[in-house]
């Protein structure tokens, strides 16, 4: 299922293709509001068109002025009341939906089957710190691809996101799973996701955040609970220590990469850039921009700026030997 070849494989990002309770609530409200607006549109535009057609001037230039109507209190009251009633109705349905979708997250509890993740927005990628699942503390960090468990019939598995920012404002928006919520430096926001069906859900940062705002893509992988459990276990492990790759690893560790990146289980403990511990378990690189293939990885390490111009990782001008060796090492990080 996750073997997508094209990273942007005809996946829908439509808000009218909801896959979670919150997104469903919003769609019902949306349809209602669209219908009400549509009705108002048809009536008012209809009267307008009728008037301009029916009362268009005839050719006679000497026709007397039409009767002058200065106003009518009764009519004014009537057409003040009508929109007022509509507004009242809309306020009521808005209230209902607001109370449905905006719920404060609970604290982790035994047997809640809930996942708690802290999402940090960074120029121009996403950092995910897995806090607890089913009240089990996790405490590992990964990047750019958010894995969450799917609910089963009669058993929902809510995901509570805590949204923070490390630099400027961003916004977390996966249309099929929920409305957007901003990540604002100096503030903590919350968003609840709850997916009905396994699959890949796409989205992207929705608050302008600088040069590569366009490529701050979101990928949410919803997995069957069992598969998700497996993924959690793998991710919690430190990086693979392949004896065959020791030389490559040492070369990597000698580079400046370690100032920014972290590879758990090695001396690389940078916290400025995506965690690379299980880089190979990700489908994409650079926040969903390119597929994670050996060629792309090589291109990225050689010159990130040619792929994602303006991104905060510079090119290092590594010699081809070193370059190959580092890419070889990265490929062992399953």
């Amino acid at each position: 299922m996750l073997l997508a070849t094209d990273v942007n494989l005809a996946h829908s990002q439509s808000i009218f293709n909801p896959a979670s309770p919150a997104a469903h609530s919003i769609v019902s409200l949306a349809i209602l509001v669209l219908a009400v607006s549509g009705l108002i549109f048809v009536i008012v535009e209809g009267v307008l068109l009728y008037s301009v057609w029916r009362f268009r001037a005839d050719a006679d230039p000497n026709a007397p002025e039409p009767p002058q109507a200065y106003g009518s209190r009764a009519i004014e009251i009537a057409w003040t009341a009508a929109p007022t009633l509509i507004v009242l109705f809309l306020v009521l349905v808005i209230t209902r939906t607001l109370w449905e979708v905006e719920v404060d997250p609970p604290a982790p509890m035994p047997d809640d089957r809930a996942l708690f993740v802290t999402v940090t927005g960074r120029q121009w990628w996403w950092e995910y710190t897995y806090e607890t699942y089913d009240n089990r503390p996790l405490g590992f960090t990964t990047a750019n691809e958010l894995h969450i468990p799917a609910g089963e019939p009669g058993q929902s598995r809510p995901v509570y996101l805590k949204l923070v920012s490390a630099d400027v404002c961003h916004s977390f928006w996966v249309p099929r799973l929920a409305g957007k919520m901003d990540l604002i430096p100096g503030r903590v926001n919350h968003l609840t996701l709850q997916a009905d069906a396994p699959g890949l859900y796409l989205g992207q940062c929705a608050e302008y955040c600088g040069t590569q705002h366009a490529h701050m893509l979101l990928r949410v992988v919803v997995e069957e609970p069992a598969a998700f459990d497996r993924w959690l276990t793998e991710q919690a492990e430190p990086a693979a220590d392949d004896p065959a790759a020791r030389a490559d690893r040492d070369l990597f560790l000698a580079q400046s990469c370690v100032n920014c990146h972290r590879v758990r289980g090695t001396p690389a403990v940078g916290s400025y850039a995506p965690d690379l511990t299980h880089l190979m378990s990700r489908q994409t690189l650079a926040s969903g921009m390119i597929e994670n293939t050996p060629e792309n990885l090589d291109r990225w390490v050689a010159d990130p700026q040619s792929i994602k111009p303006g991104c905060l990782m510079p090119a290092f001008g590594l010699g081809s030997e070193d370059q190959a060796s580092i890419v070889r090492y990265l490929q062992t990080l399953h």
């Binding site: 949306a30 535009e45 068109l49 409305g179």
Partner: peptide, 27 residues
Amino acid sequence: FLSMFLIGGLTGIMLAAAPFDFQLSDS
């Protein structure tokens, strides 16, 4: 103006419906 502003006003109403705007904002 009359025929078009009406439409713009009505899309404004959609945006003003807060939960709908959670989806529409910044789009």
